[in-house]
Write a protein that binds this DNA or RNA. Structure first.
Length: 400
DNA sequence: AGGTATTCACATGAAACTATTCTCTGAGTTAGG
DNA sequence: TAACTCAGAGAATAGTTTCATGTGAATACCTGT
């Protein structure tokens, strides 16, 4: 047996820090959700009529990332389904995440996805949208009952393709004879409804529920509970949970981030062959999560985006602030060098705006008076991540 | 000195174009009866 | 004649280009003192 063989042999024999790592994954729905009783109650009250075959009010849920919106909603839907099944009530619940690329991020694809939830297939392209709609109507109306349709990250959808689709969805009911549909929108953006068509707004948010951020103490309790199930006893050293919760309370009470952080800390500790999770593992984890996030987003961008980003990194050693024009010049040369086709400055401007959105750069529009108006751009990444990023981009762009 | 008018270097918007992937339709072709 | 093939018309979508219009404040250019 070779070295590698031994390694694997040891690996499976080695006792893991984790009892059940799934507990710390973002897909996990806990039995009991802490500190959201009030909100869950409220939502349950609003949706309960569905169990009497009456259409509940449409509902809107607001709250920042990691405030338990999705988890709570899943929890409620699970319960309702269970009850419905037990009592032979016709209830269908559908959960769709509108952000998922190539799944539900356009009007056509959203409807196609809904059809899929009914167990049917529709081609991914080639059909007119109306046809897909009427297919969906027919499916919906096939049997009696209430349909609860949860649209998660709905703000992303309207940002991309406008609110027409929501308008269509809200008036579905008038076309249905047997069944009724109830819309539940979930949004990270608190002011999302402000720039919505008033008709859509009024009919969509007949009710709304707000999920406030968790505070540090609450996050601490959540982490403690998860950690107790996920790790063996005495693995997590004192102070780790506290620091972890303090860190994410600082970041507007994002419980998901806190849980991620704890899991990564565990992974790091395990890989180092340690039996415990110490505070410095957590610090490592913080760095790794941050760096992975940036490297991943960069890697998943199209080549042209990477090219623009690399151009910025090329100037970086000399300057800390860049203007659009400067970046474009460097980018042009780079593209010539790599034989990629050169995009217009108009496009580069949009690409830079997107990098700003992604949080990779920090762009502010400034006026230099007589010398024009432009973006004042700086990198919002850590020095050591920049080095890593540069290497990764070089590989991806086939630069020597 | 104080007040306007210019001007730069882009930003921002809208529309149109290109290319890719996929469906549907109908004409022409083929194989079997 | 029924089944099959294949080209062409249409859709959806992503990524661009083209054209048009907008814009904040440092300077140039006045004006009257």
């Amino acid at each position: 047996m070779g070295k590698i063989g031994n390694f694997f042999e040891n690996y499976i024999k080695k006792e893991s820090l984790f009892i059940n790592k799934k507990i710390l994954s973002s897909a996990y729905t806990p039995e009991e959700i802490l500190y959201r009783e009030e909100q869950i109650h409220e939502v349950a009250n609003i949706l309960a009529p569905a169990l009497r075959m009456e259409k509940p009010s449409n509902l809107f849920i607001y709250g920042r990332t990691g405030t338990g919106k999705t988890v709570s909603m899943r929890h409620i839907l699970n319960n309702m389904n269970e009850i419905a099944q037990k009592n032979c009530i016709l209830l269908k619940t559908i959960y769709v995440n509108c952000k998922l690329k190539r799944v539900a991020d356009t009007e056509y694809r959203l409807i196609a996805q809904l059809i899929k939830e009914f167990g049917h297939e529709v081609p991914s392209t080639g059909l007119p949208t109306d046809e897909v709609y009427s297919y969906f109507y027919r499916l919906l109306d096939q049997d009696k009952g209430v349909v609860l349709l949860v649209l998660d990250e709905i703000d992303q959808l309207t940002k991309k393709i406008g609110d027409e689709i929501l308008y269509n969805l809200t008036r579905i009911n008038s076309e249905l004879n047997n069944s009724q549909i109830c819309l539940i929108g979930i949004s990270n953006n608190l002011v999302f409804a402000e720039n919505l068509d008033p008709r859509v707004k009024s009919s969509l948010s007949e009710e709304d529920v707000i999920f406030p951020p968790y505070n540090a103490l609450q996050i601490k309790d959540i982490l403690l509970k998860r950690a107790a199930q996920a790790f063996n006893n005495d693995v997590v050293q004192p102070g780790v949970i506290e620091k972890c919760s303090a860190y994410s309370a600082r970041e507007h009470g994002d419980a998901r981030r806190a849980i991620d952080l704890l899991r990564v800390a565990g992974e790091i500790s395990e890989r180092n062959g340690s039996k415990k999770i110490e505070i410095f593992h957590l610090d490592e984890a913080e760095k790794k999560v941050e760096s992975d996030k940036i490297i991943n987003t960069a890697i998943n961008q199209p080549k042209q985006f990477q090219s623009v980003l690399y151009s910025i990194l090329l100037i970086y050693p000399q300057k800390k602030n860049f203007f659009t024009g400067e970046i474009y010049e460097v980018y042009k040369n780079l593209s010539k060098q790599t034989k990629m086709n050169v995009l217009t400055q108009r496009r580069i401007s949009d690409i830079l705006a997107e990098f700003d959105m992604l949080g990779i750069i920090n762009a502010k529009i400034i006026s230099k008076g007589r010398y024009g108006r432009t973006r004042d751009i700086s990198l919002s990444i850590d020095e050591n991540i920049i080095i890593k990023l540069k290497a990764v981009l070089e590989k991806s762009l086939n630069l020597t």
